Computed example of a mutant assay.
Amino acid sequence: MRITETNTLFFSQTLAYLDVYLPSQRGYSPMTIDSYRDALTVFKHFVEEELHETVFSFCFKDCTRDCVYRFLESLKHRGNSPGTRNQRLATLKSYLEFVSQTNISIVPIYIEAKRIHAVKNPEKEKEVLSEAALNAIFSEPKNDRIGIRNKTLMILLYDTATRISELLNIRLSDIHLKKEGSYIIVTGKGSKQRPLYLSEKTVNHLKYYMSLYHPDDTDSSQHLFYTTIRGMKGCMSVGNAERIIKQYAKAARKKCPEVPANVHPHMFRRTLATQLYQEGTSLVLVSSLLGHSNIETTRCYAKPSEEMLRNAILSIQPSTEHQMTKKWKDQKEDCKRFCGLR
């Protein structure tokens, strides 16, 4: 039997897709690429466990529309949310599009997959932290070396509205502390850099932290937040930072019921962005602070406050009422005729 191009092994191009195409041609960040890698890994597990195939037997021709639908149904049974299922589907479509650019026989397979619609994903109102909840969480760290590190991390996370990965990637060379206008340089998605200015209180916390953790550091490439394992300093992991925040939020919830059940690093970013918008900061400036390349991405943070809604309603209320005046006076016959009476 003649071997056709569609008999090419499905996973034969994943390395080039993940390690060359996504970072070099699409400019995706390492964390974004990791999400694509995870999606393809989950699909591989589906192929092995439910289709009883291997990476050495599953071909592109086997990735039919029915196969993809079965994969999505499997994800649903495993309890994956609509958003997660949509991300897995988008990854498959992206991968098939990449392969079809160099292998024309894959185009029909890509077109069939592209016709599969994403699952409807109802928008849920995303929680933000109230002022009381923020104060409760910030009050939890002890005034010891570890506590000061953890409190500084959370304060910077909130005050700069950075993504947790951006904050943990900050190095000493990115910090510029001056008498006026102290700021840090953050590298966001697509390796885009942006300056983020710090409040005076945050600068004081940062200086105190650095006096403990970087008193004599001459290596400007050192990460601002680090952990020491077997005597070696390394960048603090996202998972470690998440555990720290969840630990303090759990303790703070016992004292302040306003602390949400599931506090995560991104909630600090969302809280500041929402507060800025509600206080009158333009969406363009909020978008710039967050490092969004498209202002539409920022609109999810544009949640109006009750005061903004009330003022909007009051602004359209008429200030005066037009009084009706009589068009006639003491004309009884005309009045009777007008009312259809005798």
Rank of each mutant, 00 (worst) to 15 (best):
M1N: 07
M1Q: 04
I3V: 15
T4H: 06
N7K: 04
T8P: 02
Q13R: 10
L15Y: 15
L15Q: 15
Y17W: 11
Y17D: 05
V20L: 08
P23L: 07
G27A: 10
D34Q: 06
D38H: 09
F46W: 10
E53D: 05
T54S: 15
K61S: 06
K61Q: 07
T64K: 13
R65Q: 14
D66T: 14
V68W: 00
K76N: 13
K76G: 10
P82M: 04
Q87P: 02
A90I: 11
K93Q: 13
S94H: 01
Y95V: 05
V99H: 03
S105A: 12
V107W: 05
H117I: 09
A118L: 08
K120G: 02
P122Y: 13
P122I: 12
E123H: 14
K126E: 08
E127S: 07
A136Q: 06
I137Y: 01
S139C: 03
P141N: 02
R145I: 06
I146P: 00
I148W: 00
N150E: 00
T152P: 05
L153Y: 07
M154C: 09
I155T: 10
L157N: 06
T160L: 09
I164R: 00
I164W: 00
I164A: 01
S165D: 04
E166D: 13
L167K: 02
L167P: 06
I170P: 00
S173T: 09
S173A: 11
H176V: 15
K179E: 13
Y183V: 09
I185P: 03
V186Y: 11
G188Y: 09
K192N: 07
R194I: 14
R194C: 12
L198A: 11
K201F: 00
K201P: 00
K201D: 02
T202A: 14
H205P: 05
L206I: 15
L206R: 15
M210L: 12
L212T: 13
P215D: 07
S221T: 14
Q222H: 03
Q222K: 07
S237K: 14
S237N: 14
N240F: 08
A241Y: 05
R243N: 11
I244A: 10
I245C: 11
K250S: 12
A252I: 15
R253G: 01
V259R: 02
V259G: 02
V263I: 05
H264P: 03
R269V: 05
R269D: 02
L272E: 12
Q278W: 00
S282H: 06
L283S: 01
L290G: 01
G291P: 07
G291V: 12
H292C: 07
N294Q: 08
E296W: 00
T297R: 06
T297L: 08
R299I: 01
E306L: 12
L309Q: 03
R310I: 10
L314A: 03
I316Q: 04
Q317R: 11
Q317A: 11
S319A: 03
E321D: 10
K326I: 13
D330S: 12
Q331C: 04
K332C: 04
E333L: 08
D334E: 15
R337F: 02
C339L: 09
R342I: 12
